[in-house]
Design a protein around this nucleic acid. Structure first.
Lengths: 235, 235
DNA sequence: CGTAGGACCTCCCGTGACGTGAGGTTCAAG
DNA sequence: CTTGAACCTCACGTCACGGGAGGTCCTACG
């Protein structure tokens, strides 16, 4: 029994028959012989090649990579090193996702999960990854109740600003200017005072007024941002 | 400008137009309005939904998972926990691959990489993951030159056995029985004397005689394994 | 007012690594 | 000789889009 049928080989190797068909189709592992009726007969060399393919696949290489690795079998080392680098990158990626998810699950009640995600998502268009890490670690350091308190102050601030806006108070009114100062101060607590982060936040607000307000549920549209900008200019 | 064109939304969200088309096609994020000529107009609610989708996608969920998460938005927590578990599994997977690759790259010269892989691959059909970990760590502990020495003894042993077989020496001849004892002793050094591992190795040899010999380059087919089995029985 | 060149539309094929039948032929055992 | 398991070849489905063809629409400029 020096020739293997496809079924036996599938059982021995743990692959499916369809997979062996596929490898045959693309010429990666071809059954060197066929019976008169067309059934595949795998020779020991075919089997050997199949096991090589399987082992390379188990290292995470694509079929094309496996093919070229087996064609010029001289230098597997650089290919493996590249693969290792890719795996390292993937590991970092997975780790980043993991920490984000655990942070989310640890720090939030169920209802706020989606809106928190949404905020993160919106911000990610405007901040760099490093800046976001910064923001997150600052929020983590403050603790959830401090973050909630800050949010409450924020809402109160916006409420007052909107009141003034509705009352027709001019932007350079000292009371409004003071509120704008508090606005920036609150912002600084979020941003850590980093000017680059503040600039990014500013950009996000001005470019994205309409969407950001509806997205985050902040009542900060209808001109409040403009109002603050004008008040800040009056300072 | 409370409606977004598809191009502007693509720029703002960092997704491609094709992706937005796709989300529209499958009904995940549909542009609620169209211009008279058929151009998509995204409302703030659409934008909001898009950002939710994007954030969930960034956690590694599939589009179907995102869809169901957004439909019954009550309990994201279990879904996230499942996702976290999947990520943990993936992290372990990547880590296993990484350690295998680093071990390979650290411990072997280029030429032997493929045959080593091949051996590993063949064995993996017969040993459990734990047993393989065992074998690997034992090989690592022995050091590469000891492994090579062992391999050399092995080849010498097989050479002698084959000689006896060719000479017609009966399997219960004391010299053959002694060689069989050495065979088992060498095997024990590989297997660490673990009976389960030995049984698995035994199974691999007897079931897979033809293939294993050609695959690993061991000249252990043509009846040598049977011969040893009979000699062992005579002990 | 005409035109150029973006921006947008739909339709449809391609990707990777197979899964999953459909419908027919061949093999091994009773 | 028959039956059921094993095998064969199409050929479409998967997932999340990429990319191009071929056509329409919008906007700014001369």
């Amino acid at each position: 029994m020096t020739r293997w049928s496809i079924g036996d080989l599938a059982k021995a190797s743990g692959l499916t028959i369809r997979t062996l068909h596929h490898y045959d189709e693309i010429g990666l592992v071809v059954a060197s012989e066929r019976t008169a009726s067309g059934h595949r007969r795998y020779t020991p060399d075919d089997v050997r090649r199949l096991y090589q393919v399987r082992s390379l696949r188990q290292l995470g290489l694509s079929l094309e990579e496996v093919r070229s690795a087996l064609s010029r079998s001289d230098s597997l080392r650089p290919l493996f090193e590249a693969q290792l680098a890719a795996l390292n990158a993937q590991a970092r990626q997975v780790e980043a996702l993991r920490s984000r998810l655990t942070a989310l699950l640890d720090g939030h009640t169920t209802e706020s999960l989606l809106s928190t995600l949404e905020m993160m998502s919106v911000y990610e268009s405007y901040f760099t990854a490093d800046q976001l890490d910064d923001l997150r670690s600052r929020a983590a350091a403050m603790g959830p109740e401090a973050v909630e308190a800050l949010k409450a102050s924020w809402l109160e601030l916006v409420r007052q600003l909107r009141q003034h806006l509705a009352d027709g108070t001019p932007a350079d009114d000292p009371r409004v200017v003071e509120l704008a100062r508090q606005w920036d101060e609150l912002g600084a607590q979020f941003t850590g005072g980093d000017p680059a982060v503040q600039a990014a936040a500013q950009k996000s607000w001005t470019e994205n007024k309409a969407s950001i307000s509806t997205q985050i549920g902040w009542p900060a549209d209808d001109g409040v941002v403009d109002y603050v900008t004008r008040a800040r200019a009056a300072r």
